[in-house]
């Protein structure tokens, strides 16, 4: 998977490396450090996350506490979405009668 260096990420986002380092030390962005190499490398997903962090910090002017809380909630949402999707696909892979039963139970009283 193609990755970029910290410097390249800074150039893409027009930020100082110090800002990226703060995000890394807060655990908000987690680049991969390959065995035997010193420097972290960022995937496209990491770069998109960094762009998101920058929006939160600069465009929405959030302080560090709030950002931590926001990110925690956003990460929980995506965790839930991923599981829900996965569960949905697992149900879709079932025979029609099973899917129908599940749907009935899901839509019935107490189910929703």
């Amino acid at each position: 998977m193609p990755t970029i260096t910290r410097r390249q990420l800074c150039e893409e986002l027009h930020v100082e490396t110090a800002r990226i380092d703060v995000w890394i030390s807060a655990g908000w962005i987690r680049p991969v450090v390959a065995e035997g190499e010193g420097a972290p490398r960022f995937t496209a997903a990491d770069a998109a996350r960094a762009a998101f962090l920058l929006s939160l910090e600069r465009d929405m002017a959030l302080d560090a506490e709030t950002m931590g809380t926001m990110l925690s909630l956003v990460d929980q949402i995506h965790g839930l979405r991923a599981e829900l999707m996965r569960l949905g696909r697992a149900v879709e892979a079932q025979p029609e009668p099973v899917r129908r039963q599940i749907l009935e139970r899901y839509s019935g009283p107490g189910g929703r």
């Binding site: 998977m1 987690r30 995937t43 496209a44 997903a45 990491d46 770069a47 998109a48 996350r49 762009a51 998101f52 925690s72 956003v74 990460d75 929980q76 949402i77 995506h78 965790g79 839930l80 979405r81 991923a82 599981e83 999707m85």
Partner: peptide
């Protein structure tokens, strides 16, 4: 076709380290 928005990566394979199960 590449997206710069976090939401388009958040449920991908590369974002596994970030997704949290704390909600459930």
């Amino acid at each position: 076709g590449r997206s710069g928005f976090w939401r388009d990566h958040a449920e991908g394979a590369d974002a596994g380290a970030y997704r949290s199960s704390a909600g459930f």
